[in-house]
Design a protein around this nucleic acid. Structure first.
Lengths: 297, 297
DNA sequence: GTTTCTCATAAGCCCTGATTATCGGAGTGA
DNA sequence: TCACTCCGATAATCAGGGCTTATGAGAAAC
C-alpha cells in the first residue's frame, strides 16, 4: 500500500483528457502498458475504479470525476512550484533582515535604503538597529541575515567584508574652535563625553585616548551621538563622533568640529554575514552599494 | 531535469520541521544520505538552496520558507485524497442517472425514489424519462448509468436484469363493462387506441393483436397512457395499459378495466446497464428494490 | 470467421533511490 | 593544540519500481 504519486496523477489526468489508454500513454510519452499499470495501481490504492473500461471508450466514473477535479488542482499547484522557483531565482533575495549599529544607522541608512531597493527591486527590507553584540548573536541565530557594523568582529562563523574607513572628529563647544587640536594624550585629560557601555564606538574612542576600557571616568554617558553633541553644545565637555555623523549632528548646536592630525582615530565599517549563508553573492553586491554610499557621504 | 516529486516534498517538510538532516531522515524512516541526496536534487531542480547548512543547525532560506508553505499545502491536499477515496468508497455510488420509459415512470417512480434513497442515503439521483431507443443510446454513450424499461433489449454491451412480469389490461368505456372479454383476434378488429410510434408499449400491444407493426391502422395515437384512457372515456375506442398504470389512470374517467384470459398480453420489466459499469453491484441492489416495489404495487 | 481495436498481463531490463561505509569540516574540551 | 565528536556530503553498491516489448483476451466490425 504505497502512496499516491504525482506520476499516477499525471497519467490519470491524461487518461481522463483522452479517454483512451493508448492516446493518453503517448501523450505522456510512455507505452500503453506503463500507463495501464499505473492507473491500476492508483485504483487499487484508492480502493475503487476511476474509469469505466468500455470496449469502445474509456469513461470516468463519478468518483473519477471528482477525483480528477482534485488531482487537476494539485498538479496545477505542483507545476506552479516550478514557476515560483524560477521567479524567485530572478529576484533571489526576497527578504533582507539587515542589522546596523546605532552609530551608523541614522547616517548611512537613509541613502542606503534607496540604493539597495534600486539594486533589488521588490526586496522586503527589514532593519534592526542595536548594539554589536546583539547583532552578532542574532546573526548567528539566524534572526538577521547580515549586519553593518565596525570591524573587526573576529567571529569564525561569520564572513566580514570591509567597506571603508572612517575618521573620528572632535566636537567642541563653538567658543573653543580656536584652541589647538588636542592629541590623544591631551584628549584623555579633557572632559570626554561618550556613549554608554555597549557601544563599540565608545570603546574605539576610548582606545584612541589610550585609556583602559574599565578605568573609572568622570565623564557623562549619552545614549546617542545626538545627545552627546547637544551636551557639548551646552558646555558639558567634548566628544568624538564619526565623520559620517558630522553633517547630521552638528547643525543644531553651537559646536565646532575639528579633525585630528595623523594618526587620526578611525574605525573600519564593514558588513558581516554567516559563512553558511546562501545569499553571499547578493551580500557582496550590497556591500558594494554600501561602500559607494559611505564613500560619497 | 526531472520533475519535483512528492517524496522530495515530504523529505523537505520533515527537514524543515526538524532542522536536522539526521532527525528528519529517521522521521521519514530512511537513512540520512538518502534524505540529503533528495534535498540536493530538489534544490538543483529549483535552482536555488532551500536550506542554509550551518555547522550547528539547518535553517530555511527565505525561499525555503515560502516554498515550505506551498509544499505543506500540496501535501495536505494529497493526503486528503486518501481520505476522500475512503469516504467515497463507503457511499460508493454518489450519483445515479437513471433512465425510465414513459410507460413505467409515472407508476413506479414515486415509490421507487423513496426506496432507493433509503437504500443509498445521500445519493444524487437524476431521472431521465424518454423512449427506449434513446435510453439505450444514452446508456451506451454514458449519459445515463442504468435504465428501467421493457425487456428484451438484446444489446450485447448491456447487462439486462429481469425484474417482474406485468400483464396488460383492457380499458373500455364504462358502459361496455358487461361485454365479453375479447381475445387477441377480436381485439384486432376493435378500434384500438395506442401510443404514438416509438413507444415499446405500442409495439407490445400490437404484437398481442398479431398485427404487423407497419400495417396501416385507423386508430388514434396518444402521447401518453393518460391521454389514451381519457379518449376511451369519451368513447373513442378501447386501449391496453399495463397493470401498474391501472390505479393511477382509471380513476378519473368513465372506463372499465378487464383482464384477458391466458395467455395474457404482458411485458417483462427489467433493468439494464453497461456491462463495463463498475457500479454493477449497486445496480443489482437497486434492481432488487425495484422488483419489490413493482411486485407490491 | 477473420480482422481490428483496445486494454490487461507477462517477462526482462534499466535507472532511481535506497543502503552502508567513509570523508571532511567545524565545534568542543582536555 | 590535538584528539574527539557531531553532522552533512560523497561514494560504492544493491534492490525494486517502473519502463519497455511482446503477447493475450475480449469485444466490435466487416
Amino acid at each position: 500500500m504505497r502512496n499516491i504519486t504525482l506520476k499516477q496523477m499525471r497519467y490519470f489526468q491524461a487518461l481522463a483528457r483522452h479517454g483512451h489508454f493508448g492516446h493518453a500513454a503517448s501523450a505522456c510519452a510512455i507505452s500503453q502498458p506503463a500507463l495501464s499499470v499505473q492507473i491500476r495501481d492508483l485504483e487499487a490504492e484508492l480502493g475503487q475504479p476511476l474509469v469505466e473500461r468500455g470496449p469502445r471508450q474509456v469513461r470516468l466514473t463519478a468518483f473519477g470525476e471528482s477525483f480528477l477535479a482534485r488531482v487537476t488542482d494539485i498538479l496545477k499547484q505542483v507545476d506552479d512550484l516550478g514557476d515560483f522557483a524560477r521567479s524567485a531565482r530572478g529576484a533571489m533575495m526576497q527578504r533582507l533582515r539587515l542589522g546596523i549599529i546605532p552609530t551608523i544607522a541614522p547616517y548611512l541608512l537613509p541613502r542606503l535604503i534607496g540604493h539597495i531597493t534600486a539594486e533589488f527591486p521588490g526586496l522586503d527590507l527589514h532593519v534592526r538597529e542595536t548594539l554589536t553584540p546583539r547583532l552578532i548573536t542574532e546573526l548567528i541565530d539566524g534572526r538577521i541575515d547580515a549586519a553593518l557594523l565596525a570591524l573587526p568582529i573576529s567571529e569564525p562563523s561569520l564572513t566580514e567584508v570591509p567597506l571603508f574607513e572612517e575618521s573620528f572628529v572632535l566636537v567642541r563647544p563653538a567658543d573653543e574652535a580656536d584652541r589647538p587640536i588636542p592629541d590623544a594624550q591631551a584628549l584623555a585629560e579633557m572632559r570626554l563625553l561618550l556613549l554608554e557601555e555597549g557601544h563599540c564606538f565608545r570603546d574605539q574612542a576610548l582606545s584612541f585616548c589610550q585609556t583602559g576600557r574599565n578605568m573609572p571616568r568622570d565623564g557623562l554617558d549619552g545614549s546617542s551621538l545626538t545627545t552627546l553633541v547637544q551636551m557639548v553644545g551646552v558646555g558639558l565637555g567634548v566628544t568624538l563622533i564619526p565623520e559620517m555623523a558630522v553633517r547630521v549632528e552638528t547643525g543644531s548646536a553651537p559646536v565646532s568640529v575639528a579633525r585630528f592630525a595623523e594618526p587620526q582615530p578611525k574605525r573600519m565599517i564593514g558588513m558581516v554575514w554567516r559563512n553558511s549563508s546562501p545569499l553571499a553573492d547578493q551580500f557582496y553586491r550590497i556591500s558594494e552599494v554600501a561602500k559607494d554610499v559611505g564613500l560619497t557621504a
